[in-house]
Design a binder for these strands. Structure first.
Length: 500
RNA sequence: GGUCCAUUCGUCUAGUGGUUAGGACGUCAGGUUUUCAUCCUGGUAACAGGGGUUCGAUUCCCCUAUGGACUACCA
């Protein structure tokens, strides 16, 4: 039975890299008929941010990633928040001490900091491990009655893992294969902090064991601690789960991990939802992305099915997903492709649905229209937009007669004879009984031909007075949607403003 | 600095010893649309470098380079 977990830390808004990690865990669980668990790792009391926990859960919900066991849904392995599990960790740390695989250390952070800088000055690196622990203040270097006295006195202390000396640690990763690290390059990591909380390393291993996690799928930033985690499982005598370390999401340009700064700089969100606290951040949802498009885009960043299919529903992703098709190298995030995905999903939405959303937007702008009219509009422009909000920018001139007229177009299209021709056209339009695109187009073209006018100059001048610029759908679709009256109004207005 | 991981078009990637190195995004050109866009067609563009192994390496091994992660009583 597959059991996986997504274990974020509530230190701020959930980054899209985190969303992808959650997604891959979810896909893997669903693919194998397993369970997807959300565990909140809030053992750092200092970095805890109010609201982050709800943000994480709301984000997953928006994405359609359903949690099977977690804070909101509860489950048989709770609680699912580490601060609520506080009581269980100390005894595991003590268990390791009694086994001789961990020890008490009394060095203060200030002492260690000083050591680090003095080593650095000499060009050395300070490592708290088998090479140095005997010269430091801990239960391995101190006489037994001394360190026992310190503990009973309540002296501040931590519990550190006793990393073996010069032993090759062999680990396996589902994505990266076999990895060997010599234990002497590793340090005696703190497992239990002086504040009574476990560190990530301890809490993570204990909870994964207690929650019967079978596969740990997490970001590549955890790869360096994989040997430690292997050792912890060994010390506890537990079977280790399978591990898979996902490649990182990189900046679209330049170097390094994708960060909030990149989004701000290049104009795209780095978070799924709007983050309302402190330094606010925009979200994909509020930017107008469909969750399906967002998820689809994210899924293909670092994984692919080996076929040429690019558009996947969540269910299709579940069916196609496999961990061994996850790419090894980090992937640069491409905001342009994200837009393309959204466009693909937008055009697949029905005209009616888009029209309903558009109607809401128009209402907020003070315009009230019926659905069928708006559906006509949607039909005209949906192919050329990526977001629902683009409906307005593409069709604003349908609702507001142009205030300004494009200078470039005026220069090219507004000739001496234009006002007179448009006045004639006005009369022609006025005489058309059935004001539909097909009939209007035919009548107007007949008139142009009979007069020997130049089609291009008439059509473009008409577009100029109706739209104000050289853009928009087919001109006859535009004027027929507007109706005869408004079209004529705009012609009159254009002639009076642009004159001759 | 140390440890570990990675390296195919600008970007996401396919490819597991013999391919004209394929697709998508972007970009460019042509066609369509007497607007703009869409759409269609086509083009551009990649195996980081050097050694091996092999009849033959993008593919296997080593070195170098480059990039990345980690190096906290943070996760």
């Amino acid at each position: 039975m597959v059991r996986v977990r997504f274990a974020p830390s509530p230190t701020g808004p959930l980054h899209i890299g985190g969303v992808r990690t959650a997604l891959y865990n979810y896909l893997f669980a669903r693919k194998h008929g397993g369970t997807f668990i959300l565990r909140i790792e809030d053992t750092d009391q200092v970095r805890y941010v109010e609201g982050a926990e709800d943000y994480i859960m709301d984000s997953l919900e928006w994405c359609g990633i359903k949690v099977d066991e977690g804070i909101r849904e509860d489950g048989p392995h709770g609680p699912y928040r580490q601060s609520d599990r506080k009581e269980i960790y100390r005894k595991y740390a003590e268990e390791l001490v009694s086994k001789g695989d961990a020890y008490y250390a009394f060095d203060t952070p200030a002492d260690l900091e000083q050591l680090r800088t003095s080593y650095e000055k000499r060009g050395d690196t300070f490592i708290y491990n088998g090479g140095s622990r005997n010269n430091l203040v801990n239960s391995l270097s101190l006489p037994e009655e001394d360190w026992k006295e310190r503990i009973s006195r309540g002296e501040s202390h931590v519990i550190r893992y006793r990393m073996p000396v010069n032993e090759d640690i062999h680990c396996d990763d589902l994505i990266r294969g076999h990895i060997v690290v010599n234990s002497s390059t590793l340090d005696d990591k703190v497992l239990f902090k002086a504040d009574g909380m476990p560190t990530y390393h301890l809490a993570n291993i204990v909870d994964d064991h207690l929650m019967e996690i079978t596969h740990v799928i997490r970001g590549e930033e955890w790869l360096p601690s994989l040997p430690l985690h292997f050792m912890l499982y060994r010390s506890f005598g537990w079977n280790a789960p399978e591990f898979a370390h996902l490649p990182l999401l990189l900046k679209p340009d330049g170097k390094g991990k994708l960060s909030k700064r990149d989004g701000d700089k290049m104009g795209f969100p780095v978070f799924p939802l709007y983050w309302p606290y402190g330094e606010t951040a925009r979200g994909y949802k509020e930017d107008g992305y469909y969750p399906e498009a967002f998820i689809n885009m994210l899924a293909l960043l670092g994984w692919n099915p080996g076929t040429e299919q690019e558009l996947f529903s969540l269910q299709e992703l579940v069916n196609a997903f496999s961990i061994d098709r996850v790419h090894k190298a980090g992937s640069r995030f491409d905001p342009e492709k994200a837009k393309w995905f959204n466009h693909q999903y937008l055009v697949r939405h029905s005209d009616t649905e888009l029209a309903m959303q558009f109607r809401e937007e128009l209402r907020s702008r003070g315009f009230h229209y019926d659905l069928p009219e708006l559906e006509e509009l949607v039909k005209m422009v949906k192919e050329r937009i990526s977001f629902v909000k683009d409906l307005w920018t593409e069709t604003d001139f349908f609702f507001i007669a142009p205030e300004k007229f494009d200078e470039e177009v005026i220069r090219k299209r507004w000739k001496e004879e234009t006002p007179a021709q448009l006045a004639e056209l006005r009369a022609v339009l006025d005489g058309i009984k059935d004001f539909t695109p097909a009939i209007t187009e035919a009548e107007v073209k007949n008139w142009i031909a009979s007069k020997g006018y130049n089609t291009g100059s008439i059509m473009n001048a008409l577009r100029l007075v109706v739209v104000g610029a050289s853009r928009g759908p087919h001109i006859f679709d535009i004027i027929c949607w507007l109706g005869r009256e408004k079209t004529i109004e705009r012609i009159d207005r254009g002639i009076s403003i642009l004159g001759k």
